[in-house]
Nucleic acid binder design. Sequence first.
DNA 1: TGATTTTAGTTTACATGTAAATTAGATGTC
DNA 2: GACATCTAATTTACATGTAAACTAAAATCA
Lengths: 147, 147
Amino acid sequence: MTTLPYPRSMGRLLTMLSEAACGLAEDYLRPYEISLAQWVVLSALWRRDGLSVSELSEYSGKKTAALSRLLDRLEDKELVRRAAVEDDKRSVKIHLTEKGQGLSHLADMYKHVNGVLLADLSETEQEQLFPMLERMLDSVEGKSKKR
Amino acid sequence: MTTLPYPRSMGRLLTMLSEAACGLAEDYLRPYEISLAQWVVLSALWRRDGLSVSELSEYSGKKTAALSRLLDRLEDKELVRRAAVEDDKRSVKIHLTEKGQGLSHLADMYKHVNGVLLADLSETEQEQLFPMLERMLDSVEGKSKKR
DNA sequence: TGATTTTAGTTTACATGTAAATTAGATGTC
DNA sequence: GACATCTAATTTACATGTAAACTAAAATCA
């Protein structure tokens, strides 16, 4: 059949780019046997250990429900452990294990992805691109039902 | 706690934008009780009915495994039906039901999303943005392990 | 023609995301 | 202090994506 063409959709373009970027990240992480979702959590802890689940949620943009299970996996892999909080027994703080700390060199993974994504754009273009996308994001989040 | 800042990551920016765009689409579709993933399949069929699973896969970028289950749901909802192919009994063609055809006005959903995404960008900026992102996508897909 | 390889689609196991219900522990107000 | 309300985290049900195994049918080729 003739290939069905797509309409010019910014949403589609963004989704394809995001999927491509995530794919690059997953490829990079595969040898270390951690998923991108797990990396996001670890990357917060590498920068500040002992965050609570709520704080991780705020940082990562993931719901605590999603984190709860992600943290189960990370505990299974012995990369993090949950610790009780004295002052507030509802709260749980997450700490890196030595094994988890040992992967901290992966914190720079996003730079590799950045490099590939931006390889074909000039400095000038990059200077234009970031602010435009940031503005788009601000404008959309202003309208979203989520805040 | 002090909010943990993020590094300047194009991957993160693209992912947040994509999620925002998908959220807008889901909000738009919610009253019709179809998911964005389902819309993608339907949008192909509204433009060309009777595509095979493979063709839908190529169009949508989804694996046939994912489609198989999606099509189960769309059949449950009586929006599409599977039809045997005479020439090749391995192949399955997907047809819209009347009910599925009846939602075809949703084909323009992406324009609504486009409108919101681009609301704060000037015409000039939009003219710059699309080609830059398209170029980025081409460049990444050229390097991806997936082709 | 008969055996081997490809191809189309499905199924299964698993990771992840969402929404809604649940649990336990703070907080606030009278 | 007792009761109502909020909050932190978890659990459950479900949709979706991936990879790998599986099935059936078509194509290849020796």
